[in-house]
Amino acid sequence: MTTSELIWYLALTAITANMVRLLPILLIRGRITNRFVRSFLYYVPYVTLAVMTFPAIIQATDSPWAGTAALLLGILAAWRGYNLFVVATICCLAVVVFNAF
């Protein structure tokens, strides 16, 4: 494939990806007052992130047990109130330690 063809493909992807992000902002200007819609939007972020985390985390590592260790230690660390970076580091270290054995 030529470089110019690749540019077209990738430009189209970039434009579409950003249009999807902008559409709701162009369409929804005010506050949403509907209780169901607000409740739905309240839960969306947590549900999306949870769905994307599991089972992906145990499929990301060579051994599913390493991913499971990362998941459990990550939940424990986050429960104890450690910040984003510390929790992510603990998950990585869990995999390193698990793979060492």
Partner: peptide, 12 residues
């Protein structure tokens, strides 16, 4: 797994 660790830190 770093990305998933970040997700966990956000939802827990």
């Amino acid at each position: 797994v770093a990305l998933y660790g970040m997700f966990i830190a956000i939802i827990v």
